[in-house]
């Protein structure tokens, strides 16, 4: 009897960690490619979902290393929510290594958050790589524009409801509650940036166009020579000259980009380099969608004053 008991306990000790947690069993397992979508899915799904993001906020979402740990997350996913517009096309490689039929391209478990987004920076002429790492379908960095949140969250509600139709009302209710909170925050952000409307900024990588447009700011130049192409000295000299001439006071830089270079250029031009959260979690204290925008708006307003 004692032998059997010891065997049973040992077996449970070995097998136990291999079994998925019981509490997670009835939740919808969602994987998002970027943390912004995770934050929004958390808001919409609430306690009914278990969400993981493939990329971290401090990473460059264009170029993610396809680790098998990403495939492991996807292996168990009921739903994969992707940014689309070719920002996270690397996810396809991870999906193919995950052996999960629920989330392959075309399956109901694959959600493209960009559906319905009014895409900016859509090339109006033929594009090629002489223009750098240009996105042929337009600028894919829409997710941190609060004005896009209603569309993104609607796409998320639809994706979740495809998997659990009986919970659609709950998701819709969560979404409305989140959008109400976002509206309140939006009024606050508008007030903070209203006096600075029309101000010009320089960005490191052209990924802020949606946010800048939303708040009436203008992107005057990029530190990158062309998207994804490191700046040449001649280009930097041109940007510094332009900043001086136009009295541009701020360079926005992503946490994953070359902050030192941006700081050096800013000092040369008599401006400030501001690190903004390019994705949720990109900067300390930006672990939710509203917190990330709070940080970005406050940092930008402070630097532009």
């Amino acid at each position: 009897m004692r032998h059997a008991l010891v065997t049973l306990v040992t077996a449970l000790a070995v097998i136990g960690p291999l079994l998925p947690a019981a509490s997670a069993a009835d939740k919808i397992r969602v994987v998002t490619t970027i943390p912004d979508l995770k934050a929004l899915t958390d808001e919409v799904g609430g306690d009914l979902v278990d969400v993981e993001s493939l990329a971290r906020g401090t990473q460059n979402a264009h170029e993610l290393e396809i680790r098998p740990s990403l495939m492991l997350k996807l292996r168990r996913a009921d739903l994969l929510i992707e940014n689309g517009l070719e920002l996270d096309s690397w996810a396809e490689v991870a999906v193919q290594g995950a052996n999960n039929a629920k989330i392959v391209r075309g399956a109901p478990g694959r959600v493209d958050a960009s559906r319905g987004i009014q895409v900016l920076d859509v090339p109006s002429t033929r594009v090629d790589r002489s223009m750098g790492d240009v996105h042929p379908h337009g600028n894919p960095h829409y997710s941190l524009d609060p004005g896009m949140a209603p569309i993104i969250t609607q796409n998320i509600v639809d994706g979740l409801a495809r998997f659990a139709p009986e919970r659609r009302d709950a998701f819709a209710k969560n979404r409305q509650a989140f959008l109400a909170r976002l509206d309140e925050a939006m009024a606050r952000w508008m007030r903070a940036l209203e006096p600075l409307k029309g101000a010009k900024v320089v960005v490191y990588h052209p990924q802020w166009i949606y946010v800048l447009n939303r708040f009436g700011l203008t992107q005057a130049a990029t530190l990158e020579d062309r998207p994804g192409i490191p700046a040449s000295p001649a280009h930097l000299a041109h940007v510094i000259r332009q900043m001086k001439e136009e009295r541009i006071r701020v360079i926005i830089v992503e946490p994953w980009n070359d902050v030192k270079l941006a700081t050096r250029v800013a000092e040369e031009a008599g401006a400030k380099a501001v690190v903004l959260a390019s994705m949720v979690g990109g900067v300390k204290g930006t672990d939710s969608y509203i917190a990330a925008l709070d940080h970005n708006v406050n940092a930008l307003a402070q630097a532009l004053r």
């Binding site: 319905g116 987004i117 009014q118 895409v119 900016l120 920076d121 859509v122 090339p123 109006s124 002429t125 594009v127 223009m131 750098g132 240009v134 337009g138 004005g147 896009m148 209603p150 569309i151 609607q154 796409n155 409307k197 029309g198 960005v203 052209p206 166009i209 949606y210 800048l212 447009n213 939303r214 708040f215 009436g216 700011l217 203008t218 992107q219 005057a220 130049a221 990029t222 990158e224 020579d225 062309r226 998207p227 700046a231 280009h235 041109h238 940007v239 332009q242």
Partner: peptide, 26 residues
Amino acid sequence: APPAAPPAAETPPAAGAPPATAQQPS
């Protein structure tokens, strides 16, 4: 799905960006 609010301001093309890109939704 509610339609996206229009951008508050139009931003001119970046200095280094491809010259012929449309900033407005297309």
